[in-house]
Simulated assay, not measured.
Amino acid sequence: MDVNNSFAGGTITTAIGADGIGRLTINRPEKRNALTDAMWRALPAALDRLVAQDQARVVIIAGAGGTDFSAGADIGEFATLRKDGDTARLYEAGNSQAFAAVRTCPVPVIAVIRGICFGGGFGLAAAADIRLADETARFAIPAARLGLAYPLDAVQDLLRALGDQRARHALYSAWEMSASEALGCGCLLSLYRKDELEAEASRLASDIAAAAPLSVRASKAAILAQGSRSQQDLETAAAIATLTFDSHGYAEGHRAFMEKRAATFTGR
């Protein structure tokens, strides 16, 4: 698949196939895909490009190089961009915008995880809808070892992904979790061998992309509204749900069921 667009000097790339599967790659493998400030700030635009312009029906996020998902924020920038409370607040605003872009993306986001998934990298994965990993995956939040606080919204994502006790343990102790432990606590949907992960992630993404797109968006909106409980999110979810009944997807799905054939969904 050809790269459609690149951001932050090529350290974030996006691609889209005719099948409607979008791919966002954290492209800094020589640094274990650690994210610079520019990369954090580019992530929302990259996701928006995939969904709003390229019309992706599902997005896969992965790290380049086939070894690591992401080591998190680039600590080399901390001396200047996170040197005190004022600079840290500005820096973390970019982090939070990236987490929110993943969390509130209108279509499902699948994090495909190999190797290191630490700190802010784990935060991005936790904000995704679904997490798949291979046996090399390792997870940790090293904030307690670095003497810093993790952003509030990211902590909420970790609570959802790990559950209450596991999230507390990870945050308080900087404990490193294996792939099997992540699967056991429900953080991962599935765990695969190294040679299986890409094919299984593509299969799941294909299943989602082949479903009625507005129906999938309605489900995502409803899940977001349930989590946030904001009036605006609740109204948005209700409005999308109503639209499904006048959509091509609803007509095609009903017709295909009556005709005992597989439905073919077009459009968004």
Score class of each variant (00 low, 15 high):
Pro29Arg: 09
Pro213Ile: 07
Gly94Cys: 07
Lys194Ser: 01
Leu152Pro: 06
Leu183Trp: 03
Ile240Thr: 02
Ala42Leu: 07
Asp233Tyr: 04
Phe245Pro: 03
Ser230Phe: 07
Arg23Trp: 04
Asp2Ser: 13
Phe99Trp: 11
Ala174Glu: 08
Leu162Glu: 04
Ser206Asn: 04
Ala46Ile: 02
Lys31Val: 05
Gly120Lys: 07
Ala88Met: 10
Gly65Cys: 06
Leu35Asn: 09
Ile223Tyr: 07
Leu152Cys: 05
Val3Cys: 14
Ala167Trp: 03
Ala174Gln: 10
Ala128Gly: 10
Glu92Asn: 12
Arg32Lys: 08
Thr25Glu: 09
Arg160Gln: 09
Arg41Val: 05
Gly72His: 12
Asp84Glu: 05
Asp195Ile: 00
Leu132Val: 01
Pro142Met: 08
Ala125His: 14
Asp207Pro: 00
Ala225Ile: 10
Tyr91Glu: 07
Asp207Glu: 11
Leu148Thr: 12
Leu148Lys: 15
Phe7Asn: 05
Asp19Trp: 03
Ala125Pro: 14
Ser228Lys: 03
Ser206Ala: 06
Ala34Arg: 13
Leu191Thr: 00
Arg268Glu: 14
Gly120Ser: 13
Ala212Val: 08
Lys31Phe: 06
Gln97Leu: 11
Asp157Met: 14
Ala221Leu: 09
Glu77Thr: 07
Gly119Phe: 09
Thr244Ile: 09
Pro142Arg: 11
Glu135Thr: 02
Leu35Val: 06
Thr136Asn: 00
Ser202Ile: 07
Ala45Ser: 14
Ser228Thr: 14
Lys194Gly: 00
Arg131Cys: 12
Ala205Met: 03
Ala137Thr: 08
Ile130Ser: 06
Ala8His: 01
Phe69Tyr: 12
Gln156Glu: 13
Gly76Pro: 05
Thr80Asp: 06
Pro108Ser: 05
Val107Tyr: 00
Ala221Glu: 05
Ala201Ile: 01
Cys105Met: 04
Ala209Met: 05
Ala71Leu: 12
